[in-house]
Amino acid sequence: MCRMVVSMKQELNIYEENLSNYVKVVISGEVDIYTSSKLKESLYDIIDKNRMDIKIDCSQLKYIDSTGLGIFAGAFKKAKEIDRKIYLTGLKSNIKKLFVITGLDKLFIIEE
């Protein structure tokens, strides 16, 4: 008999690597309303814990919507409060387009 409580696999992974003068964060998978709390928790924790600039490798980020973009905006604000910057690298064209539509491309340093 099937159990009544449903637990679905989360399609999001976040890796963190401390380098000499910045923290590299690799986000892979999909950020939507189901996985966004994991992104928020991880990203905010990385900012609080390291207090360094952050380079987020988005080359394996397959999908993001406004829930995830809101978390990026919150992370930017949090980093700015401690005078740190967030760099985004490897954005796929369809995801970069969302940053442009929402004006978030002006907050982050977007590298190819």
Partner: peptide, 20 residues
């Protein structure tokens, strides 16, 4: 494929709002 990605984002925006 680019348009399909756009449609996926749009439908997700609405569904997420209903869930919220």
């Amino acid at each position: 494929i680019e348009v399909i990605e756009d449609i996926k984002v749009a439908i997700s925006e609405v569904c997420s709002k209903y869930v919220q």
